[in-house]
């Protein structure tokens, strides 16, 4: 009897944590973007929809996305962009033809972090569980 109770206690303790950490994301940018105020979700959406293409210091913004199957991307898309995947794909393809570059795709949390650390002007998002080392945190998505 003790064992099932122990399992239940662990599940009760762990599950809400997993749920909240999966939903919370950090918006990160390369330190080259300079001292700027935290970004609102509307501004982040405008960056990923390619309506804002330059940082206040004039540097080109390089938005970074996770791969399409990623849960983090699903959370980001639902909370920030509020669009369905098919519409976004069609939109970004049309933008590409018009000379605006769609978000670069990185296929893991570490690859995303490394890309944003390395590339001037880059902006991306990571799970709040991942330490945001070597990048600037510009906001969070709850």
């Amino acid at each position: 009897m003790i064992r099932p109770l122990l399992v239940l206690a662990i599940l009760i303790t762990v599950l809400p944590l997993q749920s909240s950490s999966a939903e919370q994301l950090l918006i990160i940018a390369n330190p080259s973007v300079g001292d700027i105020a935290p970004l609102s979700l509307k501004e982040v959406a405008a960056i990923y929809l390619l309506r804002i293409t330059a940082w206040p210091n004039g540097a080109h913004i390089v938005p970074v996305n996770r791969e399409i199957a990623s849960e983090v991307r699903t959370d980001f898309t639902a909370a920030v962009l509020q669009q369905d995947t098919t519409s976004l794909a069609a939109y970004w393809n049309a933008m590409h033809f018009q000379g605006k570059l769609p978000p670069v795709v990185q296929e893991s949390e570490l690859a995303m972090l490394a890309f944003v650390q390395r590339v001037p002007g880059a902006v991306g998002y990571i799970s709040a569980d991942t330490p945001a080392v070597g990048v600037k945190v510009l906001g969070h998505v709850d």
Binding site: H60, E67, A89, W92, N93, H96, F97, L101, P102, V104, V105, Q106, E107, A111
Partner: peptide, 22 residues
């Protein structure tokens, strides 16, 4: 093969340039 850095429809990045087409 899902090559990192290239996504069909988004062109290929090379430095500050992106090369694409149809």
């Amino acid at each position: 093969h899902g090559q990192t850095g290239y996504q069909l429809g988004h062109g290929y990045d090379l430095g500050p340039f992106n090369f694409g087409g149809y």
